[in-house]
Simulated assay, not measured.
Amino acid sequence: MPRTLDVTLNARLRPMDRGDRYEDPLVEAFEEADIDCEPTGGGSLLSSDHEPTLCDFSVEVDCDADTAVSIAVAALEEAGAPKGSRLQVDEGDTLGFGVTEGVAVYLNGTDLPPEVYAEGDVNVLVEELRSHLGQEGHLQSWWQGSRETALYFYGPSARRIQDLAGEVLPRFPLAGRCRVVPLPLTLP
Rank of each mutant, 00 (worst) to 15 (best):
Val73Tyr: 03
Gly166Glu: 08
Pro156Asp: 10
Ser48His: 09
Pro184Gly: 05
Asp66Gln: 14
Thr94Cys: 07
Asp66Leu: 14
Gly145Ile: 03
Val126Phe: 01
Gly134Pro: 01
Met16Arg: 14
Glu167Gln: 12
Gln162Thr: 13
Asn10Cys: 09
Asp163Ala: 13
Asp163Phe: 10
Pro182Tyr: 06
Ser141His: 05
Glu32Trp: 01
Thr100Gly: 05
Ser44Ile: 11
Gly42Val: 04
Asp49Asn: 12
Val99Ser: 12
Arg12Ile: 02
Val59Thr: 10
Asp163Val: 12
Leu5Asp: 01
Leu133Ile: 03
Cys63Gly: 03
Gln135Ala: 15
Cys63Thr: 14
Leu95Pro: 00
Gly137Tyr: 05
Leu54Cys: 11
Leu164Asn: 02
Leu169Tyr: 09
Leu9His: 06
Ala74Gly: 07
Leu87Val: 14
Glu127Ile: 00
His50Asn: 11
Gly176Lys: 05
Glu38His: 08
Cys178Asp: 02
Asp24His: 00
Tyr22Cys: 06
Gln140Gly: 04
Asp90Ser: 11
Thr110Val: 14
Asp17Gln: 11
Asp24Cys: 00
Ala68Arg: 01
Pro82Lys: 01
Asp64Val: 09
Gln88His: 01
Gln144Phe: 04
Asp163Thr: 13
Leu169Gln: 09
Gly166Phe: 08
Gly19Phe: 12
Pro114Ser: 10
Thr110Met: 05
Glu91Leu: 11
Leu164Pro: 01
Glu91Ala: 11
Gly96Asp: 15
Asp56Val: 00
His50Ala: 10
Gly102Cys: 03
Ser70Met: 09
His138Pro: 00
Gln135His: 10
Pro52Trp: 02
Ala72Arg: 02
Glu91Trp: 10
Leu185Cys: 02
Asp90Met: 07
Leu169Pro: 06
Asn123Lys: 10
Gly102Ile: 02
Val168Ala: 04
Thr100Trp: 03
Gln88Met: 15
His132Tyr: 07
Gly145Glu: 08
Gly96Ser: 14
Gln162Ser: 10
Ser131Pro: 00
Ala104Pro: 03
Gln162Ala: 05
Thr4Asp: 08
Tyr22Val: 07
Arg12Phe: 04
Asp111Ala: 13
Asp6Val: 08
Leu54Ser: 14
Asn108Cys: 12
Phe57Asn: 02
Ala74Arg: 14
Gly84Ser: 06
Glu136Ala: 13
His132Leu: 02
Gly19Pro: 00
Ser85Asn: 10
Glu115Asp: 15
Gly145Asp: 11
Ser131Asp: 13
Pro39Ala: 12
Ile161Tyr: 08
Phe153Glu: 01
Glu78Thr: 14
Val122Phe: 02
Tyr22Ala: 06
Glu101Thr: 07
Asn123Trp: 12
Gly102Thr: 05
